[in-house]
């Protein structure tokens, strides 16, 4: 039934977000929200179709963003993840990373890997932002 379908789509979304390796706590937050939503849908059937549609939309959107990130991640050579990331970006997250990315000025002789690592950092931030926005919307519905 719809509850079982929602359970499966929730687990799939959590698994995808987990495998993306986003900021600590993201998967836990999403998992708690979806579990809460599942119980609310069990009590009030007006929730289940709305939530299930949202979960499917989130999964579809996230699939696209994650694929784009994976496509970039395989390009740097040799494979030393993050080793070519400019020092001004290391350890930054969220708004700080966004501002540093926008302000970033690379030297004209920057290597291919540096550009690829910067592109990957921007894509990974877009992935985190996408998940965060979807979590924000779920929170407004569930709580």
């Amino acid at each position: 039934g719809p509850m079982a379908a929602m359970c499966v789509s929730s687990q799939r979304l959590c698994q995808m977000v987990h495998s993306a390796g986003l900021r600590h706590g993201t998967v836990d937050r999403l998992h708690t929200l979806l579990a809460t939503g599942w119980w609310m849908a069990a009590i009030d059937s007006s929730y289940d179709s709305q939530l299930d549609q949202m979960i499917v939309r989130s999964t579809n959107r996230f699939t696209v963003v994650k694929k784009l990130a994976n496509d970039i991640a395989v390009l740097p050579q040799p494979a030393h993840p993050g080793s070519s990331l400019p020092a001004t970006l290391i350890g930054l997250h969220g708004q700080n990373l966004f501002e540093a990315l926008v302000a970033l000025r690379l030297l004209a002789d920057a290597t291919k890997n540096v550009h690829l690592e910067v592109a990957l950092a921007a894509r990974r931030l877009a992935m985190q932002e996408t998940v965060d926005l979807h979590i924000h919307v779920y929170e407004r519905i569930v709580y």
């Binding site: 784009l68 970039i72 390009l75 966004f98 990315l101 926008v102 690379l106 920057a110 290597t111 291919k112 550009h115 690829l116 910067v118 592109a119 921007a122 894509r123 931030l125 877009a126 932002e129 996408t130 926005l133 924000h136």
Partner: peptide, 28 residues
């Protein structure tokens, strides 16, 4: 709402940055 608008603006800016650096990566 404001959160969604800010999100789409940042996403557009990030997409542009990705494009720019992928282009530069192919040039070196």
């Amino acid at each position: 709402n404001a959160t969604t608008l800010a999100f789409f603006r940042r996403l557009e800016a990030l997409d542009a940055l990705v494009e720019k650096h992928l282009d530069l990566a192919t040039q070196v």
